[in-house]
Design a protein around this nucleic acid. Structure first.
Length: 671
RNA sequence: GGCGGCAUAGCUCAGUUGGUUAGAGCAUCGGAAUCAUAAUCCGAGUGUCCGGGGUUCAAGUCCCUGUGCCGCUACCA
């Protein structure tokens, strides 16, 4: 018997769940787990919310809550969303709980004692007013690269560039708004280079992994690994288990995967067998399987195994990491910051969770990004679930009741047509089993529908509505086989539609106990009663409503971060002029840069501008734009840039050059 | 610029280690049937498998190259 420990990626507890999360990490895991429960495998399924880190603190402060209150709020909301989708975790924990703190500290200590974690000092912003070090995201200022406003300490949203936070210009503390100072601090680093060979060797045993996972990791390994800081200076996190380290916590990406363990420990406690978690985590025959989205590959396939390798306890390493791709919505990428997503709690206000399970299973992003459209949702529900499957059940049930009082017994012998239909179905079921094992949910779904199609075809060919008038046993046999198919379907499809399949079984007076091995066990008599519609159709109006909701989504207008007031003289220091673009060409070996020759009245100058993604050289030649003339020249890709062209950038970094409304001579000053 | 991925029917996608005439569902068209949620079933058509070259008896599949899109990464305002 297989022993399996399944995890779904911990979800960040600063917002709700969207269907992309579900399609990538939760539904495939749940289907896999439910299938293995049918097989009788010894399997448990854990996950939880990732609750630490600066984004939680910042959001909590904005909403006037404590981090714990915020995290609890979202934990509950997320929990409800998963319940609405019938995701059957054995335990769904959170990383702010004592279990997790204890274990994470132990992990850190083990690595520290073995010198895989080392302390190093460096410089960081410190706010004297708030008396604490400021994590990257707690500092905002002017980007040192693009001079955009509102860049965070770790990254500038405007140019997308990663920033070494102390290089941020005009830094401001995000809590009090005051200017922080630079102060010496120290952090602990995970020495990943020491793991390089071990990881490479380990990965060679993973030939059965999905290509996307292996390729991604080998790319990183071949580039060489670098040490990474695993501590931060904030107060919302797991304190370091060391003396004199007040204000230092473990960085989320270090502690998050440990959440799988602490969730298992919590589960063992809940069932009253506190040591039971070791049966999984310490058993070399237990298969540890992480379901994640592709953005999580480096952590799960590299850092996490490295951390596990050097523990004092005999932890198992991941057996498989079936990472899924992304789910787009109506052809566009999900963007949580722009609120372009289908949130599960919203979805559940309109439709049954089982319907989403079906559509996401049928269109799972297994090998590449998939596209979710509401129209496809409607077609799949109406055409496949309602018409093919639901209607098969309905026509068989109503017929049975109408002509046989709902009682159908097994015939003494089966005709050739019946045997053929049966063996076709059995062949498909064998295939389905293999697909479930290999996480091929998409294929599984279509195979299941094929069984229902066999039922419909067989029913039509046998025409029981005619036979019932002349040969009742012929009609009865037809119904019997269809009921058998429905019974098999109720088992085979239960990992995908657990609740609907129970509902189906109830109408057939079958009990809730299901097992894969029961599939071939035919019933001698069926009693049909209390039939109801399994799947109702979705109307065009309902779909239009959803599409409109999606289109209505307004970009969340983030609060503006203002710079300090300046004097008129400060402004007048800038020499802004209209210039005419004479020449423009792409800078070789660069993706974003254009080299421009511009005319400023009597002068011409050469400048480099990072606008290539929004403008091609032909767009620019002859155009008049605004330029900052007296910016200190700078060498960029071997070219001296003597100034800066002004352009506005939106959230997605689409650029728009500033041009004069009416034609005006180049060289004209702007003020 | 480097690394990786993707490109197949009107749409969404399958195509296993190269091997008959490249498939499914949806949509479209024609027909059958009337038990059923107007549901079902049968039949039909549709393809420069992104372009170009190569290896092979044989290429959607392997190699090279070009184009387009995506991701990571580098330079960068």
């Amino acid at each position: 018997m297989d022993k399996i420990l399944v995890t779904s990626a911990l979800i960040y507890a600063n917002g709700p769940v969207h269907i992309g999360h579900v399609a990538g990490a939760y539904l495939p895991a749940d289907i896999f787990v439910r299938f293995h429960r049918l097989l009788g495998s010894d399997i448990i399924f854990v996950s939880g919310t990732d609750e630490h880190g600066a984004p939680v603190s910042i959001k909590a402060e904005k909403e006037g809550k404590t981090p714990r209150e915020l995290v609890n709020f979202y934990h509950d909301q997320i929990d409800k969303s998963f319940a609405g989708l019938n995701i059957s975790f054995d335990n769904f924990s959170g990383t702010a709980r004592p279990y997790h703190h204890k274990i994470s500290q132990k992990f850190f200590k083990a690595l520290l004692d073995k010198d895989f974690v080392v302390q190093k000092s460096g410089q960081q912003f410190y706010c004297e007013h708030d008396q604490r070090f400021l994590a990257d995201r707690y500092v905002e200022g002017v980007c040192p690269f693009c001079s955009a406003d509102g860049a965070r300490g770790d990254q500038c949203d405007s140019c997308g560039k990663l920033i070494n936070s102390i290089e941020l210009k005009e830094p401001k503390c995000k809590i009090c708004g005051k200017t922080p100072i630079i102060k010496e601090t120290s952090h602990w680093y995970l020495e990943l280079p020491k793991f390089e060979n071990m990881l490479k060797e380990w990965l060679t045993t993973k030939s059965y992994w999905k290509d996307n996972v292996i390729n991604f990791i080998m790319g990183w390994l071949n580039d060489g690994l670098i040490e990474r800081a695993i501590t931060r200076d904030i107060d919302w996190g797991i304190p370091l288990p060391l003396p004199d380290t007040e204000g230092k916590v473990l960085y989320v990406w270090f502690d998050a995967p440990i959440g799988y363990i602490s969730s298992t420990v919590e589960w063992a406690d809940k069932i009253g067998e506190p040591e039971k978690w070791k049966d999984y985590w310490f058993d070399p025959d237990c298969k540890l399987i992480h379901f994640i989205g592709k953005d999580n590959i480096p952590f799960h396939a590299m850092i996490w195994p490295a951390v596990l390798m050097e523990q004092n306890d005999p932890y198992i390493l991941p057996y498989d990491i079936p990472a899924n791709e992304y789910l787009n919505i109506e052809g566009s990428k999900v963007s949580t910051s722009r609120n372009y997503a289908i949130w599960v709690d919203e979805y559940l206000k309109y439709f049954n969770g089982e319907l989403l399970r079906y559509v996401l299973a049928a269109n799972a992003p297994e090998t590449r990004d998939a596209d979710f459209t509401w129209q496809d949702f409607q077609v799949r529900i109406n055409n496949e679930l309602a018409n093919i499957l639901g209607n098969l059940a309905n026509r068989v049930f109503t017929f049975s009741i109408k002509f046989f009082a709902g009682e159908i017994t097994k015939p003494l012998s089966l005709s050739v047509a019946t045997q053929t239909a049966l063996s076709e179905a059995q062949a498909i079921i064998t295939e389905i089993e293999a697909c479930y094992r290999n996480y091929r949910v998409r294929k599984t779904t279509s195979l299941i529908m094929d069984i229902a199609r066999i039922g419909n075809r067989y029913f039509d060919e046998r025409a029981p509505w005619k036979a019932v008038k002349t040969d009742k046993s012929h009609a009865s046999e037809t119904l019997y086989l269809c009921l058998e198919l429905l019974r098999m379907l109720s088992i085979v499809m239960s990992p995908i539609l657990p609740v609907k399949m129970l509902q189906l079984r109830k109408m057939m007076n079958l009990d809730d106990e299901m097992s894969w091995k029961y599939i071939p066990r035919d019933k001698t008599v069926y009693y049909i009663s209390n039939i109801e519609t399994l799947f109702t159709k979705i109307t065009d109006e309902q779909i239009d409503e959803q599409i409109q909701l999606l289109e209505k989504v307004q970009p969340e207008t983030a609060p503006l971060v203002h710079k300090p007031e300046i004097e008129y003289d400060d402004f007048m220091k800038m020499e802004l002029r209209i210039v005419k673009v004479l020449q423009a060409e792409k800078v070789k070996k660069s993706k974003k840069l254009l080299k421009l020759m511009v005319k400023i009245g009597s002068e011409t100058r050469e400048i480099v501008s990072g606008i290539s993604l929004s403008y091609s050289p032909e767009d620019l030649i002859g155009k008049k734009v605004v330029m900052l003339i007296n910016l200190k020249p700078r060498q960029i890709m071997g070219i001296t840039s003597q100034g800066m062209i002004l352009a506005a950038a939106d959230k997605d970094n689409n650029l728009s050059l500033i041009t004069p409304m009416q034609d005006i001579d180049d060289g004209s000053e702007v003020s």
